[in-house]
Design a protein around this nucleic acid. Structure first.
Lengths: 214, 214, 214, 214
DNA sequence: TATGAATGAGCATTCATTCAT
DNA sequence: AATGAATGAATGCTCATTCAT
């Protein structure tokens, strides 16, 4: 759509200098704060520059090709942080049922520890769109966590740990229930993410377990 | 800050003429289409006027006090349509467990029949904010369906139909699972809302039922 | 510039019905209040209609040819009220020096009793302009009170009551000093218009009297 | 309600570049011309941009936070120019009576040399208001020249040079008489500001002097 | 690597006024 | 005598982005 005219490092690329990486991180961090506070729709370059104490909005355009590039970087950053946080917790529990519980708990724990990042991520995933109205973050990226969850649920069904159900529907409900916590955290003052996680664990254990099994 | 504009019919009130009501409906309908297509953030007066085939954006300002007024009208309209659709379906089933199933199914059925309205409603509820950043639709309005659901779940617990659980957490999960369908409908081409509804019915029946009972 | 298309009574004319006159008065009164409160620049038809509790701005357009016509009516109304109030007070004192004092005192007394009208009048006279930027109220209308004052001062000089001075300059200073009271009244909470009037009487008595005389 | 726009140089502050300062000056100058010609109410960004030959109205928003900021800059600029012009003239005459005469003459001389600036200043001071209707230029700023004059008059009374009178009332009359010249200059073609100044000097000398003194 | 300056398109909203009854 | 509905042209202002160092 647009070719970068500057000699800038904007394009995704790989060979980035240290200072550039630090700047990008700084800008993404400010973007996260801004989205969490004002919502995606009101998160303008001007607002972000203000929060990041940047001398000029130009610095954002310099380091990111366009707004889409910036928000994709945000999504990538938070998703990677989340993955790094959750993966060991989940992999520590090999059996399907335990792993599902670990998945839910890890998500809610991450939310409890990184509420700002999660709120920003959820908002961007739900609302960021291109000029033509299509979602900014490709449906596959968006569904990546759900797709993994679906696969995991199907494995549990094959092993007989989970009852037969539509794995996609179940995964959708699980992710939606988890993501809802981000909104509750904003709206309800004393919302306890971990307690909500424990309720979800029980809820989805009952909903998925195979009573006939073993 | 802002004073009443022209002596227009804008402010809500009761005594509105037929022509005015027709116009308001026409504009709200166009707004629903616009939000469903472009998202709340991109739903400008110009886009709405285009879809409503209005001669001037001024007609919107004439019939609605401001943007907030328009979106509140949208929310009110869709919520009322939804209520009229779902209430009889839910009240036809008095027992707690059956009523919960009816609640879920009615919601998904409504979504299947009014996908555009629901998508617009969910988007506006999630994203519409005032200038100061506060949600346009008051948190209580927003939570009204959840609050009713909570009460309903607690009644089921008292009657022994439902197991003990945190009713607020359960209600949050149920609503989130239902609302997620609106997004799936946009993202997935052949998404079957009714089938998803049946899965949710089973899911939440297992998750709520009291095995010790009766 | 513009011919009235409606069959309305808008054009100045003479043969106006009673209801029409009552309506015009009601609208002018509301305009006075609006200008006093918001200033000329912010006194829109919408604001005036709101204060006059008119059902539609259309009523204003119906009774007045355009905005200029309305504000000219305002000026005429207030000036006539002021003249009716002040003329007897001034004419009661035939000698030049006493008459000048009466002129000043009558003006300030009128201000004290009709602060809203005077503030509106001063604002409109100072700021109302046509589309091309020329003053709405013709310079001669505007200067009418000053012109009378000039003549009066010159008579006093001929009779030997006043010292020789530039009558126009003196008249300008007198009127400006009087009109300034309207602004002080808005800005200063406990401004005493009558006390200010007494100070002006002394001030301009000393400034105009002919010490060599008699 | 309103957050800082682009990370522009708009906010006042100190560290402004040369180019920016030149632009700001250019815009303020064009604003002065526009206000003098069309009046405050009609001095829109579009009109100002036209007179400043700017490529876009956006340049104004870029260099000034909002309209209020621009007009405050205008007031500051003209007041500073006026102060620099008048202060040495006034301070050159230490005795109260002479100083008052110098004050009046300096004001009228400044008007004669900078009629456009003064007309704009008087118009903005009288009419510029915030959204809520409060004066844009704080009452204290506005009254600053009057307050100084009051103090000066009181000193003259203590020293016995001036007769007893209400210093505030006298100061109000003096300033009003001076400011009226700006309007006369617009309305009357051959108005002679310096001659008017000399008349005011005589007028207020007679009105303030202490006949019993010395 | 960074930046100050500039820009045109778009935003919601207000304006006085006119059309049609 | 009154009025509900409509309207196009402005308003101040924000947007992401580009130019030129």
């Amino acid at each position: 759509m647009r070719v970068n005219p500057d000699s800038a490092p904007a394009g995704g690329g790989s060979g980035r200098s240290l200072t550039t990486d630090a700047r990008r991180t700084q800008i993404v961090t400010a973007t996260i704060e801004t989205v969490a506070e004002l919502g995606y729709a009101r998160a303008s370059f001007a607002q972000i520059a203000k929060r990041a104490k940047l001398s000029s909005v130009r610095l954002i355009s310099y380091h990111f090709e366009d707004k889409g590039d910036l928000f994709q970087a945000l999504v990538g950053t938070v998703q990677e942080t989340a993955r790094a946080f959750m993966q060991p917790r989940i992999e520590a529990r090999p059996e399907p049922a335990a792993q599902l519980s670990a998945y839910i708990e890890a998500n809610l724990e991450f939310l409890a520890e990184h509420p700002v990042e999660v709120r920003a991520l959820v908002d961007v995933l739900a609302n960021a769109r291109r000029e033509d109205g299509s979602p900014l973050v490709s449906s596959t990226d968006f569904d990546a966590p759900v797709a993994l969850l679906v696969e995991h649920l199907r494995n549990g069904q094959l092993s007989g740990d989970f009852r037969p159900f539509d794995a996609e529907a179940m995964a959708t409900a699980i992710r939606a229930s988890i993501d809802a916590a981000a909104n509750r955290l904003s709206a309800v003052d004393d919302f306890d993410a971990r307690a909500y996680g424990r309720e979800l664990v029980t809820l989805f254990s009952l909903a998925t377990r195979n009573v006939e099994a073993k």
